[in-house]
Design a protein around this nucleic acid. Structure first.
Length: 937
RNA sequence: GCCGCGAUGGUGGAAUCGGUAGACACGAAGGACUUAAAAUCCUUUGGCCAGAAAUGGCUGUGUGGGUUCAAGUCCCACUCGCGGUACCA
């Protein structure tokens, strides 16, 4: 009987569908368990084999939990808003919704083929009005809230208004606009003039995590700094909670560390420095309060508001020239060019301790957005200050004993203080503490904790995103009433920005708000009395992905994001699987978003994802052919990889990417290569054995003449011709083979190249396994068979619990081997084997299980996960997990030929053993044949 | 620069609490079946040495030290690779 995987897989996928086998209810006696994948952006290229890696892992875990009797929520959806669809729309004029829907359809089809146990009834798409209703709703709530620092939580803005009314007599004298402006400084979602990352190529602003090294993450276009009026979310208010929360969740240490760095807590002090000849001091932030005695100059950021105050008339022209230069430098240029630049302001500050006069400079190595945008410079103990001091010939005073500052600064926080007045002789750590106390006592500063985490810029000048539920009156934003949500994305005539530089929504004709009828109306009617313009920006990508996990709990609910009952039943995601690339984006924003909703009493858990596993990236494995470019080259001769280091070819070949789909195990399919592209039609080769068909084009058969390709690990991408599509793999080997193979590739968290050599192995295993199910019989299993099975139960259970999926496949293979050597075809054994295999290879497992039944019935749902009975394993305590409890151990060297019993005899009668045992009976004697004996007392 | 992760045969990798390193798979070599090929099955496969053979010995987990009866695993120092991040005072 042949293993017809196509028939089996199609059959069971249909059965599951028919039975609605994976539909999940919020009403269940079973314990809930929520397993989530990071939902994909449906790109036009479709899924490649790298995408399903994490999905397969979470599917295995879901199926396992389900078999253990949990009610498992395992949904899938789509992060449907995004730049590529919009760019494509601009190029082709196709509506992004159309292409997005096509892509989603393709994704669903591909995902279905892999046999996931998703409950598709719970699918969400961020671009559906039903979904973005709740994105807008949350934003609206953020606008209507402020962060109460003393209670450390978000509160309704009315409470702040009440507070102002009570405590600030000027409040009621303010105009409505002035009041609104004041409140804006507190709202969690707020509008402000911010310095933003502007990407001219994309025509939009970007969040900090969407920019890397001065280039946009998507597209790699240059990004410049620009001041614009933008929506932001006050994420920074949650910095302390976002940091503390990390201790309560089970994420990998590296990911938590990345978030800790991004949040960037630093304990230090704010200190006031007086300006010579002025009354008002200015404030700086430092983590090294101990180094005040070594301050030899001050530096302000170019954008600092202090600049205006300290510039003297003589220096004004020079300063303005410098500021101008800074403004026109792009972020990228600034990063690329690290030369020291700066300008003297003409003013001096007074060191509050030494009372020395120190010059104030401006330089762009000081950032406006961090601390107070001003620093005290201690060149001896800070490398950046050191470089600056050297450049401008400023004094450098060492403050730590033995620190040699003639060549470089001494940045380490260790050593004994010198030249530091009352701090002299102290260790650095003590000096920091002492100085903090001193400045608080003297009233020249205060202890302060700073965070690097910035507020998230929330406006995007794009079409394909969630519209803001916002209209403008007298230049101030107002929220649409809650019952008017969702505000649907309007149709536009053009997806590009308007001629006068407005975002694409500027093209929308029906994009004004009538506050009386509470409807969207033609913007030609705007009168600024009852009809007002609507916001033209849309929300960024992370808006839709920040609370989607909550929507899955209750995706059909039209009255709430999630009902309290549904939320209290599922509570939070128990297992979240996804890539590390979201560490500083999505995973920060959704934690923030969740904490806000927690403050609002909408959700009952303060952290959204209690456990998170990162799957590694699957890289491409590219193949190369080597074109001969030496003497007499026709540009048409390709040298086999094993020969390219031969003297006649060395340095005379050029590697060329070749489509990996026409290469099998690094052997080129010659005919396919000749047909691949016109330029290779008459390709000639020097084969692995050194023979060539140069003079005789079709010499030999491909079997005899092999062309070996070289290879390299690169990103999986079209241009490298190394994209492997899961559909092709499934067509050739089946979904079960694909699933097993993706897991077999290596540890889940590790990045690894996709290398198809080896998939034959798992496929062969399934075929062999299949043959064991030809004629299952109802017979008592032997002890040996049971042992083999229970070994497997123990192993597979351990593997799944520990996400060590890759080591399960060998265990299955070994068990199959053992059982087949025992000629086992007993139902009792085969049935259990099928259950164990079900999470990994569900289709074949269903079919196998089915064959073990008397009469047809559906499986998996009502059968439970087998439990290992250790008594079957005890027979030889040596081989299986040996516990060393560290009581007492010996080492004796013994001949290998001795039997276990003989060894025990010898060991126990050994004089040394007797001495140590002193009459006690050993609990256990562990023998490692030939070498080691452990006696556990 | 800083932070994190990693390095084991020809290849991917296994070794789960410090206990027989190289499981399992691929590849390779040889063999069986076959007119032939595919498919399938069997044997061998870290290196070196001895032996006709069974087998035995030595060596071996990036480098150098250390702890231990015992180290791929723990500690110290270093080299290389990957990922993240960066004038954050």
């Amino acid at each position: 009987m042949e293993y017809n995987f196509q028939e089996i897989e199609q059959h069971w996928q249909e059965e599951w569908e028919k039975a609605q086998a994976y539909r999940v209810s919020n009403q269940s006696e079973r314990k809930p368990f929520y397993v989530l994948d990071m939902f994909p952006y449906p790109s036009g290229a479709g899924l490649h084999v790298g995408h399903p890696l994490g999905y397969i892992a979470s599917d295995i875990y879901s199926r396992y939990k389900r078999l253990q009797g949990f009610n498992v929520l395992h949904p899938m959806g789509f992060d449907a808003y995004g730049l590529p669809a919009e760019q494509y729309a601009i190029q082709t004029g196709q509506h992004p919704e159309k292409t997005t829907n096509q892509n989603i359809a393709r994704y669903i089809e591909q995902l279905r083929k892999i046999g996931f146990c998703y409950d598709w009834n719970r699918m969400v798409r961020t671009c559906d009005p039903d979904f973005y209703h709740w994105t807008q709703w949350a934003f609206r709530k953020m606008f209507l809230s402020y962060y109460d620092e003393t209670r450390q939580q978000a509160r309704p803005i009315e409470e702040l208004v009440a507070l102002f009314e009570k405590e600030d007599p000027t409040w009621n004298t303010l105009s409505e606009k002035e009041q609104q402006e004041r409140l804006m400084q507190y709202r969690i979602a707020y509008l402000s003039d911010t310095k933003v990352n502007w990407c001219p190529e994309l025509g939009t602003v970007l969040a900090n995590d969407e920019v890397s090294e001065g280039l946009s993450v998507r597209g790699g276009f240059p990004v410049e700094q620009r001041v614009m009026r933008q929506w932001s979310l006050r994420v920074s208010a949650y910095a302390a909670r976002l940091l503390e929360g990390l201790d309560k969740i089970d994420w990998t240490e590296s990911l938590k560390e990345t978030q800790r760095n991004w949040i960037g807590r630093s304990e230090g002090a704010e200190m006031q420095f007086h300006i010579k000849g002025q009354d008002e001091p200015f404030t700086i932030f430092t983590t090294r309060a101990d180094t005040v005695f070594g301050v030899t100059f001050m530096v302000l950021a170019p954008e600092s508001e202090y600049v205006e105050r300290v510039v003297t008339e003589e220096q004004r022209a020079e300063v303005e020239a410098y500021l101008d230069r800074c403004k026109h430098r792009t972020e990228r240029e600034r990063i690329a060019d690290r030369r020291v630049t700066g300008v003297f302001t003409g003013s001096y500050a007074i060191n509050p301790l030494t009372k020395n006069e120190i010059p104030i400079y401006i330089s762009d190595y000081v950032l406006a957005g961090y601390g107070t945008g001003a620093i005290m410079a201690v060149p001896a103990h800070d490398s950046r200050d050191y470089a600056f001091a050297r450049h401008f010939n400023l004094p450098i005073i060492p403050l730590i004993e033995g620190a040699d500052v003639s060549e470089q600064s001494f940045d380490a926080k260790e050593g004994k203080m010198i030249n530091s007045g009352f701090l002299n002789g102290m260790e650095v750590k003590d000096a920091i503490r002492a100085m903090k106390q001193h400045i608080e006592k003297e009233g020249i500063g205060r202890v302060k904790v700073n965070y690097r985490l910035r507020d998230a810029i929330f406006s995007r000048q794009r079409y394909w995103g969630e519209p803001f539920p916002v209209y403008y009156k007298d230049g101030m934003p107002y929220m649409l009433p809650e019952e008017c949500l969702p505000l649907e994305l309007p149709e536009v005539s053009d997806f590009k920005p308007t001629k006068d530089g407005q975002p694409p929504l500027g093209h929308a004709q029906y994009w004004a708000w009538n506050t009386e009828t509470q409807q969207v109306v033609d913007k030609a009617l705007i009168d600024e009395k009852t009809i007002f313009p609507l916001e033209l920006c849309t929300m960024p990508g992370f808006a839709g992905s920040s609370a989607y996990y909550l929507r899955y709990m209750d995706n059909k609910n039209s009255d709430a994001l999630v009902s309290p009952e549904a939320n209290q039943y599922w509570r939070q995601v128990n297992l979240y699987i996804g890539g590390t690339e979201h560490a500083t984006g999505h995973l920060i924003y959704s934690r923030f978003w969740n904490k806000f909703l927690f403050d609002m009493g909408v959700v009952c858990e303060d952290e959204p994802f209690s456990k998170l596993i990162n799957q590694g990236m699957i890289q491409g494995r590219s193949n190369f052919v080597y074109r001969y470019i030496g003497e007499g080259s026709t540009g048409n001769l390709y040298i086999s990889y094993n020969l390219i280091d031969n003297p006649e070819y060395k340095d005379k070949v050029q590697p060329i990417h070749v489509n990996v789909n026409i290469v099998h195990n690094d052997i080129l399919d010659i005919d396919a290569f000749r047909n691949w592209m016109p330029e290779y039609k008459n390709a000639q080769f020097v084969y692995a054995d050194g023979t060539t068909d140069v003079d005789n084009p079709y010499i030999g058969t491909p079997a005899e003449k092999q062309y070996i390709c070289g290879w390299a690990v690169e990103k999986m991408s079209k241009s490298m011709f190394n994209v492997v599509n899961p559909d092709d793999v499934i067509a050739k080997y089946g979904a079960d083979s694909l699933r097993l193979f993706e897991m077999f590739l290596g540890p889940l968290e590790m990045s690894k190249p996709w290398d198809t050599s080896g998939i034959d192995g798992v496929h062969r295993f399934l075929k062999k396994l299949w043959n064991m199910y030809e004629a299952p019989v109802e017979e008592e299993p032997t002890r040996e068979e049971l042992r083999s099975l229970h070994k497997l139960i123990k192993k597979i259970t351990w593997d799944i619990e520990n996400f060590s999926f890759n080591t399960s496949i060998p265990a299955f293979m070994i068990a199959q081997n053992e059982l087949s050597a025992l000629k086992c075809n007993k139902r009792a054994i085969l049935k259990q084997f099928a259950i164990l295999l079900a999470p990994y290879a569900p289709h074949i497992a269903e079919e196998m299980y089915h064959r073990c039944q008397d009469k047809p019935q559906t499986f998996v749902i009502d059968e439970s996960w087998p439990v290992c009975n250790e008594s079957y394993l005890e027979e030889d305590g040596v081989k299986y997990p040996v516990q060393f409890n560290g009581k007492m151990r010996f080492v004796l060297t013994l001949p290998k030929t001795m039997s276990k019993e003989e060894v025990e005899q010898v060991v126990l009668s050994n004089a040394d053993t007797q001495k140590v045992l002193a009459g006690a009976t050993p609990k256990r004697v562990i023998v490692v044949p030939g070498k080691i004996v452990n006696i556990v007392l």
